[in-house]
Structures are given as structure tokens and as C-alpha cells.
Amino acid sequence: MSLSLNRRILRVDISHSDGFKLNVDQQLALEVTIEKNCLDPNTNATIVVYNLTDHQRNILITRVSKYNYWYNQNNLDNARAWVTPVVISAGYKINKQEQVNLIFQGQLITAELTSGPPDVGVRLMAITNYFSRSDFKFYQLNSNLTYKQFALWVGKQLNLTVNCNTLYDDQTITNAGIGASNGQGLIAELNQMFYSKTLAWVDNTILNVIDLGDQGIDDELLDYDNFLGVPQYNETGAQFKIMFDHRVTVGKKVHLKSLLDPLTFHNQSFTVFKCLYRLTSRSNEFSVTAWCQQ
């Protein structure tokens, strides 16, 4: 059955250890944009929600204001108590069964009004692994540390699960020493150790480290021949757009077959390096666009 014929499910769950909770789903007007890029250590999300209650709206605007964001850039202890976790999930209701998957898990950083009455909108900006930007780590590395051991250590510093599978896992790091870096710097250092041969990035709560080239984050190969528009070649490989499928994410291997352009796309596989989710509850958009490397 075509995914477009199934009922959409879109959920935004906001909670905090102080007891604040806000759960919004497709019953309200929701517009969600999530961009994942293997070259960006953090995933960004924008959430626009309309017609919250006055109480809900005031709490969000107060606790996730731009003033708080700017103030807490230089006050980490206060920021840890202020930052509010958010989870975005999406899927479909198929044969009376809900099939919903987590797409984004991060922290809210700003909230602002986007429109006035009668349909009052609030725009929320969120980011994954928020403290990796400003939380510095001082370290002294073992002289015989392997590449995979270093990746595991970086994951531990950032409270991330590590998925490391490269040809260089057992290779000893030759320039290990003493240093200081924020979380983004540690990920950048992972990328620099075997530059142009391996790639490290964060997807929600997972630190992925893979070989560049044919290898993906797992052994699954996704087949697509039903697109929104026509898939196109670009300067790195290919670009395509489909109805939302949670399996399409950075590092996935995809096999594309175009019925309108069979000569260009025939029996070819690509690896996704960037994807853009556009999810709405009341308008037409409920899709993922992927940029791929061959």
C-alpha cells in the first residue's frame, strides 16, 4: 500500500526534570523541519506549532527565550538546568496499527512567536548534543590507543552510543597526547586522523564512524522506484525525494531506479550523506529529501 494513503502520525514530546511536560501531535497544526548532515556534528530541527493554550505558550516563550539562550552560552551550570529535552517522532497508521519511529532527539534552544491571533504560532529551534559546542574536555591519551578505542572514548565524553566500523579500528594513533577541546572538536579530530578515509558524525544519541566509499552504517540496502518528482544527478552523486520513510537517514545505502529516467538510474547504489525531513500535520508536505554519494 502506498504510504501516501495512510494516516500520518507526527509527535513532539517536550519534557524536563522539573516536571514540565508538553505533548503535541497531529491534532494540532504542526510544521517540522529536520536537517541531518554528516559534515555537521549537530542535527538541527525547527518546530512550528499553532494554537497552543495560553499557559503552554507562555511557559515555552519564557523558559526557552532567546535571552536565556544568549545568557547561558557563558554559564554552563545554569544552562544544564535550563535546557529542555525534545523528541520528535513520525510515522503512519497502517491497518489500524501505528508504526512510529524516533527521528530527532535533542534540546530546545529558542522559542519565539511567528504569528498573532487567531492562529498563534510558536517557532521552536532545537539541536542535538547541545553541550558539545561549549563543554570543554581536558584529556591525556594513552600512547598505544587505537582508533576505535579513541572513538569509544569520545562517545563516552559526549554521552553517546558509538557505532564504529572502519578498516582502521585497530590502527594505533601516532599523535596521541595531552589536549583540550569541546565536543565538536573531538569529533573533528576523529575525522582528521584518517582524513578522506573515514567519516564521523552524530545522529541523535549515536556517534557513527564509518569508512568513506561503499560502506554504509549497516548492511541494509533500501530500494526505491517511487519518487516525488524525478531523482537527479548532482555534483556528488544523486538527489531524490520520497514520502517520509524513517529508514532514510545519513549513512544509509540506497538503490535507485527511475521509471522516467531508466538510462540514468539503472542498477546503481548510493550512500546518503545529507537528508532533509519536512513533516506537517495539515498541509501536503510529509517527505524526506536525500543527497547521496556514489
Rank of each mutant, 00 (worst) to 15 (best):
V209H: 02
I47C: 01
V32P: 06
N75L: 04
I173L: 14
N226H: 07
A45P: 15
N165E: 12
I103N: 04
N267P: 04
V24K: 09
D214S: 11
Q97S: 01
K137E: 11
M193T: 14
Y50N: 09
K197L: 09
W291L: 13
L222E: 07
V122G: 09
L222T: 03
V49E: 01
A90M: 07
T205E: 09
Y195A: 10
N191H: 14
V154P: 08
N68Y: 12
V272T: 08
Y147C: 05
F240K: 10
L5V: 14
Q293N: 15
G179R: 09
L152V: 11
Y277Q: 01
L167Q: 03
Y50P: 04
S65C: 08
K274Q: 15
D211F: 01
F240V: 05
Q99S: 04
C164W: 02
D169K: 06
I242C: 13
S89Y: 00
V230S: 04
V272R: 10
N234P: 12
L3Q: 11
K253V: 04
N37P: 00
K148T: 03
L199S: 10
S283F: 10
F138N: 12
W153H: 11
L190M: 15
L222P: 01
L39H: 14
N159S: 13
L190F: 10
L113P: 15
P262Y: 02
E98V: 02
Q73F: 09
V100F: 01
L259K: 14
E98W: 06
R63G: 03
N267C: 10
D169Q: 06
D225P: 01
L10I: 14
A200S: 15
I34L: 05
N23A: 15
T114E: 04
Q27A: 13
G183Y: 10
I178V: 13
T43F: 10
R63W: 02
L145M: 15
Y139Q: 08
Q26G: 11
A151Y: 01
P85L: 04
N204Q: 09
G213Y: 11
A81F: 02
Q73C: 11
F265Y: 15
S269I: 06
K253M: 10
I206W: 05
R278W: 00
L263F: 00
L186Y: 12
T146C: 12
E112H: 11
V86H: 05
L102E: 13
R11C: 09
T33A: 14
R282M: 12
A151C: 09
T53M: 04
L279F: 02
Q171K: 14
D225F: 06
